[in-house]
Simulated scan of single mutants.
Amino acid sequence: MTADLFAGLAGEQTREAFDEGVTILRQYAVAQDEVLVRAILAVARSAPFRHMKTPGGHSMSVAMACCGQVGWVTDEGGYRYQSQDPETGRPWPAMPESFVSLARSAAEAAGFPGFAPDTCLINRYQPGARMGLHQDRNEKTFSSPIVSVSLGLPIVFQLGGLRRTDRTERILLEHGDVVVWGGPARLRYHGVLTLKPGEHPVTGPVRFNLTFRRAG
Rank of each mutant, 00 (worst) to 15 (best):
P205R: 08
A39T: 07
G183Y: 01
L172S: 05
G132L: 06
F49A: 12
V30D: 14
W92H: 05
D33R: 15
P55S: 12
F142A: 10
A39D: 13
I171D: 03
I40D: 04
E139R: 08
Q82Y: 03
R188D: 01
E20R: 08
M52N: 11
S148R: 13
R214N: 05
Q135R: 15
D4G: 05
S98H: 08
K140C: 10
D85E: 06
A107S: 07
A29R: 00
L133W: 00
G21Y: 10
C66Y: 12
T2R: 10
P145D: 05
G89P: 09
P154N: 08
R214G: 02
Q82L: 04
A106G: 09
P201C: 00
K196I: 00
P96V: 15
E169I: 01
T54S: 15
A17S: 13
G128D: 06
F49N: 13
V30Y: 06
W181S: 05
E139F: 03
Y81D: 11
S150L: 08
V178Q: 01
R104I: 03
P113H: 00
R207N: 06
N123D: 10
A44I: 12
Q13G: 11
W92V: 10
Y79I: 07
V179P: 02
F99A: 06
Q84M: 14
R124Y: 00
G8C: 03
G111Q: 06
Q69T: 15
G183E: 09
S148D: 06
G128M: 06
F6I: 05
G160I: 13
I146P: 08
E108A: 15
T165G: 09
E76Y: 02
R80H: 12
I171C: 01
L172M: 08
A185C: 04
T141D: 04
V147W: 04
Y28S: 06
M60G: 11
